[in-house]
């Protein structure tokens, strides 16, 4: 059994700061986010989850892909991601989102070199959940409060100590190289019960298989119009989502430096599908909201074998009009036991 004492975490992170860019949950003006820390004691350990997801560590909201300068015909590719990084304190849902992003951006038909380079130099140390929020639905989408998918090391919170589950060979090497973990006698409490005792607290309202089958038949369902009626068409759900990854490419120029930037984009924006001809294949909220749900719970399962949602609940808790995706999924007949 390998453990690390809670009050040793600060020292552990301090030790990593020399060699790694360390990201951890911190409070910025009252809002919890993942950000670079400069000292181990900045990391917040008592939290349900952060307001924004940690996906920006792998896919910044804005990044420069290419640049060129003045009369120089050469183009620089900005593929170097700098120092290797450690993401400390991700929740299992967010770590699982990395598994999904890997399928789309790194391991699939096309390899996004910018994402892949960051991902390959990132080590993920996640912390399992002890208290699900009222918006959590990770178990619906195949995860769980102690799921280690996407993590290299999962820490199980036992109060004054964390029990470490090494979840990848890189995690094992890392733990050994940094002397991260103490070894003591005894059986690991949570091992073998991936979802611990928490699973019943997060009732899966839908069955993903049934939902997918229902969505296959629902492209023209009038329900989309009703469901999308109150949607404001903002990008909160997409931008807070750990799995949404759509982007726009923009070329900009200032003071003789030309850059090609990638910026996050959202399928909920009207200009997302606006074409140069002036035609927009998704002209209203009905088509745009349908796309968001279909992409996550239908097309992603076809294309990547995994839903594009990890049930973190950020879209549920932060939607300004309380458009609750769980209700939308249930409305399509994916309820367990049939509907």
């Amino acid at each position: 059994m390998r453990t690390i004492a809670r009050n040793e975490i600060g020292r552990l992170l301090d030790g990593l700061l020399a060699g790694y860019a360390v990201y951890a949950p911190v409070r910025r003006k009252g809002i919890l986010v993942f950000d670079r820390i400069r000292s181990g004691d900045e990391a917040i350990l008592d939290y349900a989850n952060t307001r924004t997801s940690p996906k920006h560590v792998l896919m910044p909201q804005m990044e420069t892909l290419l640049s060129s300068c003045g009369e120089d015909p050469g183009v620089s590719e900005h593929t170097d991601c700098g120092k290797p990084a450690v993401l400390f304190g991700a929740r299992p849902c967010d770590a699982r989102a990395f598994l999904f992003l890997d399928k789309v951006l790194r391991d699939g038909q096309s390899r996004d070199v910018y994402y892949a380079n960051r991902r390959d130099s990132l080590l993920v140390i996640s912390i399992g959940c002890t208290q699900p929020r009222e918006t959590c639905f990770c178990t619906t989408t195949g995860g769980g409060p102690l799921s280690a998918e996407g993590s290299d090391i999962l820490l199980e919170d036992l109060g004054s100590v964390y029990l470490a589950h090494v979840a990848s060979s890189r995690g094992a090497e890392f733990a050994a190289a940094h002397g991260l973990l103490d070894t003591c006698e005894g059986e690991p409490p949570g091992s073998g019960t991936v979802n611990g005792g928490l699973q019943p607290a997060i009732e899966p309202p839908v069955d993903l298989g049934l939902l997918k089958a229902a969505l296959d038949r629902s492209f023209d369902d009038p329900l989309w119009l009703t469901l999308a009626e109150k949607c404001l068409g903002c990008g909160i759900c997409s931008y807070l989502c750990p799995a949404c990854h759509c982007f726009d490419i923009v070329d900009e120029e200032a003071a003789g430096v030309r850059v090609r930037n990638r910026v996050w984009d959202s399928c909920q924006f009207s200009c997302f599908t606006a074409q140069a001809s002036g035609f927009n294949p998704r002209p209203t909220g009905r088509e745009r909201y349908r796309q968001r749900i279909m992409h996550k719970f239908n097309y992603c399962i076809d294309n990547h074998g995994m839903a594009g949602c990890v049930g973190c609940g950020r879209c549920v808790s932060e939607c300004p009009v309380n458009l609750d995706m769980r209700q939308v999924l249930a409305a399509f007949g994916g309820r367990r036991g049939g509907n």
Binding site: M62, G233, V263
Partner: peptide, 29 residues
């Protein structure tokens, strides 16, 4: 995320200046 704009009852331009792309008035990042 444009939530401020989209929640606003008086922000009703059929094309908002930040959504203009020809030319782009405001960078999107």
């Amino acid at each position: 995320c444009n939530a401020c704009r989209n929640a606003c009852p008086l922000c009703y331009c059929s094309k908002c200046f930040v959504d203009e792309t020809r030319p782009q008035w405001v960078g999107r990042g």
